[in-house]
Amino acid sequence: MDTSYETLSTIAKSFGLFYLIALSIGITIYAFCPSFGKRFDKAARSVLDDEEGPCR
């Protein structure tokens, strides 16, 4: 293997951090995007009464 352990682990570690930051920002935006609010509320309520069979 050409790449040494040192470089590999440095790349791994820094990449991991950036990935973490990007992912958390992305998810926060998704979860708090106002346009999804209605959809989420609807989904949350949807499980309460779902025994009527598949809708068609």
């Binding site: 998810i27 926060t28 998704y30 979860a31 708090f32 989420f40 509320d41 989904a43 949350a44 309520r45 499980v47 309460l48």
Partner: peptide
């Protein structure tokens, strides 16, 4: 018989 407290929180 109550919806989940916060759906957003469940996604996060």
């Amino acid at each position: 018989e109550r919806p989940i407290y916060s759906y957003r929180l469940s996604i996060l």
